[in-house]
Amino acid sequence: MSDSRTTPFRDPTDESPLVKLLVILVGLAFLAFFLFLPLVGVFVEAFRKGGQAYVEALVEPDAVSAIRLTLLVAVIAVPLNLVFGVAAAWAIAKFEFKGKAFLITLIDLPFSISPVISGLVYVLLFGSQSLLGPWLKSYGIEILFAVPGIVLATVFVTFPFVARELIPLMQDQGTGDEEAALSLGASGWQTFWFVTLPNIKWGLLYGVLLCNARAMGEFGAVSVVSGHVRGLTNTMPLHVEILYNEYNFVAAFAVASLLAALALVTLALKTILELRFGAGGAGGRRH
């Protein structure tokens, strides 16, 4: 054609610079306002009265006890859910059985109901009006308003994390590698240890990380079953609430800053793991 007004070629899925700028700006502004500002706010508030006050708020006995309890709960809940998650994902991905769809639905349950309900369930089960509560109490076992109740509520709220992460991964990988290992003479345990576990290790780590973050940060369910006994049944999130209600803002935000730091570390580790995933590392997709 002689009439060649040259319009520069543009990718069909590309947009005009103005639209692009607008979309990016909206996204960034939203993030800045809802995520970045509050996060900065937590740290600013925590250090308002200087480093001295910040450290004091953290080494105070009730705070130390709350940190210790939070760590204890995570140390119990995360390994439990690791074992449960691997077992559930294994069963769902590698076997055919009746009620499989039901099991998948059940695993999602804690995601779909309010954490407060998750806590109330345990009050109904172990409270003084319930069947189990008085019976256990006659043996001197306290569940509600004690550490066991907090652990139970946390396990309940966090149990989907590992399983949800592993189910699609293991379904995608299928049973070919396991069959190969068995045909080479490996026992069931050797197959799991040498073949299945290495294949899922990055996904597993990712799930554990998310599970841990939630276990340490859980508020609603734990709040219902803990009884808020200072120095005894207060986890970090509950401790933050108490301090805040007492207008002790510096201390409240100092403890909150620890939880925020935990979130940041989790985020960083998650990003690193995702890079490993994406690069098709040892645990990556099929070659």
Binding site: D177, E179, A180, A181, S183, L184, G185, G283, R286, H287
Partner: peptide
């Protein structure tokens, strides 16, 4: 029996040498 799978089912986190030695190691 020696079984060679359609898509080989090689253990992707092991080297070729470790793959070959797997049956002896276990």
């Amino acid at each position: 029996v020696g079984f060679v799978f359609q898509h080989y089912a090689l253990f992707r986190h092991m080297t070729a040498g470790d793959n070959i030695g797997f049956g002896l190691k276990v």
